[in-house]
């Protein structure tokens, strides 16, 4: 196994393309190192992307932010402006692992690991985040909800890697929130995760909403029906109940050691309601 540390996107793309699928990208390594150690993956080359400047920067862009794929959870937490604009996204990142893990783990790695239960993904979907991907044929952009295609599988083609995210600007009276359910208080993997983002007009009517749902299907879902239940309402309890019904209808979970179908479906609605109320409160205060 070779370890390479390219300093440009082009070099990284070449290394990954030459490996013909035998390459793995290393950002924080909090998933990859565990997989290497347990023998789950045996790559020919590990490409560390952290020396590529764009993967490590947070820059203001068009009223929103461009966030490098390898920016760590701890760095996101310390970025006040980003946290103010997208509190739900940052709180989702902060839920990953422990304080020590936060010093390494990145949002990009969390997405590329393609776990259906990844905490940041429903929050990024709710936020309408876009992925910027570099590859042999140049760069392309993809909405987060289209990035993962199944458990452990992504839309990335041979030679491609995730460089950064765009978190868009947002109008006044907007708020987002992410909640997950775990049996413990931390250091665990989501049984259900829900991200909600919404914007209100000056009369308190919801004019835009997005709802991301994790751990209840093969990939995290954008649930348009849940958002539709909120848009045009004052996000009253009746609207929230309709949103909860839409969430539960969208669930396609499995029975496994972390939760049953019945339990996941039930709790996804509960969390969606709670996340929505937090997002609403944030929107009203912003």
């Amino acid at each position: 196994m070779r370890y390479e540390v390219p300093e440009t996107k082009g070099e990284a793309v070449s290394l990954l393309a030459m490996a013909e699928g035998g390459g793995r990208v290393l950002a924080g390594g909090t998933d990859l190192l565990v997989q290497l150690r347990s023998g789950m993956v045996k790559p020919d080359v590990v490409v560390d992307i952290k020396k590529i400047v764009e993967t490590r920067e947070i820059t203001a862009e068009n009223g929103g932010f461009r966030v490098g794929a390898a920016v760590t959870g701890a760095e996101l937490d310390e970025h006040k402006a980003l946290k103010k604009l997208w509190p739900g996204v940052v709180e989702a990142v902060e839920l990953i692992g422990s304080t020590q893990i936060q010093g390494r783990a990145s949002m990009g790695g969390n997405l590329c690991n393609a776990s259906p239960a990844a905490d940041t993904v429903p929050a990024l979907i709710a936020a309408g985040a876009q992925c910027h991907i570099a590859g042999p044929d140049g760069e392309r952009t993809l909405p987060v909800e289209e990035f993962c295609t199944g458990p452990g599988v992504t839309n990335l083609q041979t030679g491609e890697f995730l460089v950064s995210f765009t978190l868009p600007s947002r109008p006044p009276h907007s708020g987002d929130a992410y909640l997950r359910f775990i049996p413990r208080t931390e250091m665990d993997i989501a049984v259900v995760g829900v991200g909600v983002s919404l914007s209100l007009d000056s009369n308190g009517i919801c004019v835009a909403a997005r709802v991301g749902l994790g751990a209840v299907a093969a990939t995290a879902l954008l649930v348009a029906e849940a958002a539709d239940a909120l848009i045009g309402t004052s996000v009253d309890e009746g609207a929230i109940e309709n949103m909860i019904s839409a969430i539960r209808s969208a669930c396609r979970p499995i029975d496994d050691k972390r939760g049953t179908i019945v339990y996941r479906t039930q709790v996804s609605g509960v969390l969606a309601g709670r996340a929505c109320r937090i997002a609403l409160q944030r929107a009203e205060q912003s």
Binding site: P183, R184, T185, E186, M187, D188, I189, K257, R258
Partner: peptide, 24 residues
Amino acid sequence: YIYDENGKVENAGFLDYRVPVCSD
């Protein structure tokens, strides 16, 4: 302990065998 139908342990690690963490 969680066993599958073949009598194999499904949660042989501290991630899914949940001892309390400090904040619990």
